[in-house]
């Protein structure tokens, strides 16, 4: 047997067939259960589906729970929460059920009547109601995992010895005070997610929600703190489920911050991006050593140029890949040095 032949690969119909032959199921129910645990049929469970919507991210389409403060009109609202309109609660169904009966209709009497003339005429189809166009996610599922890992990974000291560095030191006849070890990329610091739910970002509100879910899928619920803001990221807030109140954002030492925003430009490149408050925001992140990334749905020509070298700005686009991000991060690190 060649080395490659030993590979099992993904589970396929062959595995289902061999399991059914070997286990000899007694009835159709057993067959469905066996196929289900192998990922086939309606009983297959999606283990990657989120067990429940996370309370950390506010679902703007969910009816308000009693704990959540009621939404205020858009002009008086607080920044950072409850901005999108809510769907009305469904009408309650009546308690009583009306009697109903199904019966066959006799065919329409016909034959004798003359066929209406308009039936033979050329007629124009009434315009069909337009189907909702398919939405293309800014971060498609196939690339989301790689992009977010590349974007949010930080370095920590690993346990593997850096043989190259050790050899160099010994060759220079220098005895190291401590064994040099190789750094490893890690997501253990999680991230703070600052989502811009301003009017200017309306076309991407769905993407903002999706980004939050994607970050949680990659990092885990406990490691993602999602905040919302409108206009000024420093005023971002999040809903604390345990304490049942809004919590103001503040940067945490060395914890990556990912801001999804368009800088409020509304697609106008000539508009200057409220420079002072964005610069102050960047300075605040720098002061605690928090890596800062901006995901911007507009291309490079629309990006501000006055934010300095610390933040990394990424084009939030379906074509953005993990490799591009790693290259960009490597480049920005070199430039920063």
């Amino acid at each position: 047997m060649s080395v490659l032949d030993r590979r099992r690969g993904e589970i396929g119909l062959g595995d289902v067939a061999s399991a059914l032959r070997s286990l000899r199921p007694a009835d159709a129910d057993d067959v469905a259960s066996i196929a289900g645990v192998l990922g086939f049929g309606l009983r297959a469970a999606d283990l990657n589906a989120q067990p429940a919507p996370t309370p950390a991210i506010y679902d703007h389409q969910r009816p308000l729970t009693p704990q959540r403060p009621q939404q205020t009109p858009s002009h008086e609202r607080l920044p950072g929460w409850a901005m999108p309109p809510l769907l009305p609660a469904p009408e309650p169904l009546p308690d009583d059920v009306l009697p109903s009966q199904i019966f066959r209709e006799s065919p329409l009497a016909g034959g004798g009547e003359e066929r209406p003339a308009w039936l033979g005429e050329a007629y124009r189809l009434l315009p069909q109601e337009r189907a909702t166009p398919l939405r293309h996610a800014l971060l498609p599922a196939r690339t989301a995992r790689g992009v977010l890992v590349a974007a949010l990974a930080t370095w920590r000291t690993g346990s593997e010895i850096d043989v190259t560095e050790l050899t160099r030191l010994l060759a220079e006849q220098r005895m190291p005070q401590r064994l040099p070890s190789l750094p490893v990329a890690t997501l253990e610091r999680g991230c703070q997610l600052l989502l811009d739910f301003s009017d200017s970002m309306v076309p991407w509100w769905e993407d903002l929600r999706e980004l939050a879910q994607q970050a949680i899928a990659v990092l885990g619920d406990d490691l993602v703190s999602a905040y919302e803001f409108a206009g000024t990221p420093a005023e971002a807030q999040r809903w604390d489920v345990e304490r049942e109140r809004l919590v103001a954002w503040r940067p945490e030492a060395e914890r990556p911050i990912l801001v999804a925003t368009d800088f409020g430009i509304r697609g106008t490149p000539s508009l200057r991006h409220g420079g002072a408050e964005w610069r102050a925001f960047v300075a605040r992140c720098v002061s605690v050593g928090a890596p800062l990334l901006f995901f911007v749905p507009w291309s490079r020509g629309y990006w501000p140029s006055h934010l300095g070298l610390h933040p990394q700005i990424v084009h939030w686009h379906p074509a953005t890949s993990a490799a591009m991000l790693r290259r960009q991060r490597g480049l920005s690190r070199r430039v920063a040095r």
């Binding site: 099992r8 589970i11 192998l38 297959a44 469970a45 283990l47 989120q50 067990p51 990659v218 406990d222």
Partner: peptide, 20 residues
């Protein structure tokens, strides 16, 4: 085992018999 705190790579899940 997984508590489903993080998503697992599809290629990994598709190689396993799954039980919820």
């Amino acid at each position: 085992t997984t508590n489903r705190e993080r998503e697992l790579p599809p290629a990994f899940v598709r190689r396993c018999v799954t039980l919820l």
